[in-house]
Design a protein around this nucleic acid. Structure first.
Lengths: 239, 239
DNA sequence: CGCAAGATTGAAGTACGTCAATTCCAGTGG
DNA sequence: CCACTGGAATTGACGTACTTCAATCTTGCG
């Protein structure tokens, strides 16, 4: 069940069976959630640590006008809130996008791992740093790239992230998002997003069968969208 | 010299004289830098940890087309790169905006503090989490706010951040940025930024004398720009 | 088969960008 | 004290990438 997490951390360091067992033992509960359910809401005091096992979720904020901005996608293997244990309250919400399976980890167990297992702690820290780097890259995307490159860049990123946790086949992956949600991620209206997606399809960069996104020519799309994978810090090479 | 850092960490926890001494002892060197000098460049392997003592600096990335996106402002008291010690190389650059005084801290000393002084470690961690929260809020700004609110929101944030380290007088602070740099931060052209700044001035929200930014009515500007300071996590109240 | 959510389309409006001048201003040298 | 200079701020005219609104078409699904 923790396989995506193991694969993810495995990008940074070799995990021993003992390491895996420790992580496994920290899990106290597992739950299924439907799509569009909040896992944590802005203002909540963070409690247990959520690990996403199946499905996609998102960090987001709602503005007074009702607009939503998605600030991060969470996919299998991602810890939603290791970090917030220190803060008094959540400054954003986390909600599921698709159906999700979520493992709840006891934060005491995780804290002890961090204190007593330097190598695992480093791997967890590395993963938090990568999340930060991704947020920064999204900022670049929003500030300086136009719609077509925005979408292309995001698709390259999600393909590599999915690949790292074993969720790709060839260069395709499940993308359980509506165009509205994609728009709320990239700061675009769903109308413009739709038209731009069509352009990427007709230019041959991508194809799609329903919810599955197919990247026809990753190198071409990377070049087009000015995508440099360095910020993902997948340091031991890709899976 | 480390006073801004002490004030900043003091927002989260009470620092003892011993804590301060430890931080002080970690400093191995201090240097002056002119404006627009790079402190670290993309691709560098992170070495010593930089602490900004005076002046403003910025995290930024350059795109192939020559555009620049600024992803964070660093002001006195900010550690530039505690976190990156783990990563193989910098995925962005850090450059000064104004003249800066920079203290170099030995990363071994800092590592030992983190391992042996749980309270200080927590404070440093808290500060890293706040930086992350700020980046996320900038993402919201870029995705969903228009130029006037973007600028207003940024000014509210920088006022509060400056206030926390003792760099304000009434509701004004030094803003050592050109309009071009502000534009590169907010994803706007300097022309549009200029016109929008004028609008904020004529609407009475702000005034300025040269490099000094004066917020005439903070509450009004916060309401206008939809600014909620929760994401700054200034938990023990403002200085 | 029928419904509802999502995708797609068209038309019209707007917030922004670009280009190119011009003005302002702080610092410098005389 | 003033003229000179280069960078920054400001202005105008024009183009465009996006938004909004409102309709229609598709698709998955009970």
């Amino acid at each position: 069940m923790l396989d995506p997490l193991f694969r993810k951390l495995g990008q940074f360091t070799e995990l021993s069976d003992g390491d895996k067992q420790l992580l496994h033992d920290a899990v106290v509960d597992v739950a299924q959630h439907g799509p569009r359910e909040d896992l944590i809401r802005q203002g909540d005091r963070p409690g247990r640590v959520h690990l996403l096992v199946e499905g996609w979720a998102a960090r987001y904020k709602l503005l007074p006008g009702g607009e939503r901005q998605i600030m991060a996608y969470l996919i299998p293997g991602d810890l939603c809130d290791v970090h917030v244990a220190l803060l008094q309250q959540m400054d954003h919400s986390i909600g599921t996008l698709s159906r999700c399976k979520v493992a709840y980890m006891q934060d005491k167990a995780l804290t002890r791992i961090i204190e007593e297992q330097p190598r695992l702690a480093k791997a967890l820290w590395w993963s938090a740093l990568v999340d930060e780097a991704i947020t920064r890259e999204w900022l670049v995307t929003m500030g300086r790239r136009q719609a077509d490159k925005r979408i292309g860049h995001l698709l390259c990123e999600m393909l590599l992230r999915c690949k790292a946790v074993g969720l790709t086949a060839d260069d395709s992956f499940e993308l359980p998002l509506t165009q509205e949600e994609l728009g709320d991620t990239l700061g675009l209206s769903h109308v413009h997003l739709n038209r731009t997606l069509q352009k990427l399809r007709s230019d041959g960069f991508i194809g799609s069968n329903g919810r599955r996104m197919v990247i026809n020519d990753l190198d071409a799309l990377m070049a087009f969208a000015d995508f440099d994978p360095i910020y993902l810090h997948q340091e031991r090479g890709r899976a």
